[in-house]
Design a protein around this nucleic acid. Structure first.
Length: 223
DNA sequence: GAGTCTCT
DNA sequence: CCTC
């Protein structure tokens, strides 16, 4: 293990997963299996601490529709949407307070995963926390509200499995589908940074640790 | 496929 | 990033 910095993904993978630990799904995109599982209890504890200060809420799109996914954020910036548009904000509009700090465990996980996928020196300043109840979904979209498209997106899946759609640069490109399970970390950047992606309606189920929900963490360099 | 916002 |  390297000294004085976050452990390499390979270290965390040791003896955790029998199958392939890493799938390269496209140039600049990798799916890391079992990566977050080693820290699931610690992750859930810090997520709960963030949520205590910045509760999940269902935000409104500019078109006036309420999102099925409940969201909150931590870090220097949080993603928000309302009738005025999509953007990053340094303060939680619900409380008018700064978003909770990004817990070190979360940052280190994201940085390690990015490194494993080939993106050195990822410095995320925003972590969106999305909660999917059964039926919740995320329409096909691009992440383009960030300032820096050189930085990748790192997505951590916890709880119930979901079907992820990973498309191309054009909305008309037929998306590939694959399942994102508890402990998976998906990293995409480079050529695939602005790819269209989404999540199909969550199938009901019961997860041993999280119950009837999926939590997704998405790390970005927003500012 | 378009329009819904805002704004660097 | 949602619905038409």
């Amino acid at each position: 293990m390297r000294k004085g910095s976050a452990p390499l993904a390979a270290d965390l993978f040791e003896n955790l997963f029998d199958g392939p630990r890493r799938e390269d799904i496209a140039p600049g995109a990798a799916l890391l299996h079992g990566f977050a599982r080693a820290q699931e209890l610690e992750l859930m504890a810090v997520i709960e601490a963030v949520v205590a200060r910045a509760p999940f809420r269902h935000m409104m799109t500019p078109g006036g529709h309420t999102m099925s996914v409940a969201m909150t954020s931590c870090g220097r910036a949080g993603w928000v949407t309302d009738r005025r548009g999509y953007r990053y904000a340094t303060h939680d509009p619900a409380s008018e307070l700064p978003w909770p700090e990004m817990p070190d465990v979360l940052r280190e996980l994201a940085v390690s995963a990015a490194a494993e996928a080939g993106f050195a020196a990822f410095t995320p300043d925003a972590c969106l926390i999305n909660r999917y109840a059964p039926g919740a979904k995320m329409a096909l979209h691009q992440d383009k509200d960030e300032q820096d498209f050189a930085a990748p997106i790192v997505s951590v899946s916890l709880g119930l499995p979901a079907v992820f759609q990973f498309g191309g640069m054009a909305r008309s490109d037929k998306p590939r589908r694959f399942e994102l399970r508890h402990g998976d970390v998906l990293v995409w950047g480079g050529e695939t940074r602005l790819v269209y992606h989404g999540v199909l309606a969550l199938k009901d189920g019961e997860h041993p640790l999280l119950g009837r929900q999926r939590i997704n963490l998405t790390f970005r360099k927003a500012l």
